[in-house]
Nucleic acid binder design. Structure first.
Lengths: 193, 193
DNA sequence: GCAAATACTTGATGTATGTTAAGAAAGCTG
DNA sequence: CAGCTTTCTTAACATACATCAAGTATTTGC
């Protein structure tokens, strides 16, 4: 399959300069995959084989608690990465589902191939170091706001940032992502207007 | 100052193999600093100059909200890293305080020196890539438990893990770290016994 | 070893958000 | 566009945790 147009390389170049041959090596390590809407690419108990760079579409990761309630912990759009990192890097059974919310196109890479790629293009360690650094800082900020602000403030922040997610995913998913019930989010939205 | 005994190198070697000369380069980049108890090493508004590897002692990072309430978001012990990463890496004004809770000994490194060290010892990119990867996975787990379990469960989990923090820091700090008030933690503890 | 400061506990009451249940609105599909 | 399904809203009531206020225990400094 011809790799469709995407921004993987520009997004890496934001942080590290690549030689043409390095770009080549990176591109050939990723495999494009088209996914229909509502497609599960990972289920709890499986060993996560891939992480995914999203070229087009929306994916979420979530788990289901003992009562059968879904809890979404990530929603990612174009040019974002998604995966169950714990399972992918440690090759332990996954704890999460990963699923498309729209028909999507992703570039996937396996754990083994990524390790090989690190050896071929050491600069990539730097790229992923910076990526995880930023992801970590982000996760801590989200943790702070979850612990120390109301759901209402968290929702208003999302609105203020004009977050694309709001336009693209059902409200119940946004509620779960914010850590509240759909009923609560509905009430919050009512209050504002 | 002679560098006191510490486990920085063994902790790095857990993830990457170092040549003797690489160990040398790393060691010479870090500066040991002794800190008294309750010493602030960073205040909001300052640009964070260093990150710290803790040889001995306990440090916390926290912020103070508009009402003057402290919110602790990290407590770190021996062989852990602490810093305001956002400020350190972006050289933006810090949002957090960082403070010792005991007399402590840390190894500090500046942003510029760390970049230089990455150039001298590229393997370090790999070490920090893995470190941030794990920190990120951890932060997401903490986020999950904060959103979707009760404070009581979170506290009991800490007890079950036999977390060293419980023995070493005042209860009010643990409450804040768990995202609740000291009064609530006191009641949770009462219930159990 | 005593006073003062700090840390922890307890109780009464308030509030944000959850739960349950039902109905209204919107989106799909033939 | 009719009917079915999914999503969203609304209301009454429940609950975990916060807040405020006071009292008790523990630590610290002289």
């Amino acid at each position: 399959m011809q790799i469709p147009e995407h921004k993987l390389i520009p997004y890496i170049q934001k942080w590290v300069d690549l030689l043409p041959e390095e770009e080549e090596k990176i591109l050939s390590a990723f495999e494009p995959v088209e996914l229909e809407k509502k497609k599960l690419v990972l289920k709890p108990g499986e060993i996560s084989k891939h992480i995914y760079f999203i070229v087009k579409g929306v994916l979420r990761s979530y788990f289901v608690d003992e009562k059968g309630v879904e809890h979404i912990y990530q929603i990612r759009l174009e040019n974002g990465w998604i995966g169950d990192l714990e399972s992918f890097f440690s090759q332990n059974p996954a704890k999460f589902y990963i699923e498309t919310l729209e028909a999507s196109l992703v570039l996937q890479i396996s754990n083994g191939r990524l390790e090989q790629l690190y050896a071929e293009v050491p600069k990539l360690e730097r790229y992923f170091r910076i990526l995880f650094q930023k992801a970590y800082i982000n996760a801590l900020q989200r943790l702070n706001s979850t612990m120390w602000t109301t759901a209402e403030e968290r929702y208003q922040d999302m609105v203020k940032e004009n977050c694309d997610i709001l336009q693209r995913v059902p409200q119940a998913y946004i509620a779960s992502y914010l850590g509240i019930t759909p009923e609560s989010l509905s009430r919050i939205r009512k209050k504002k207007s």
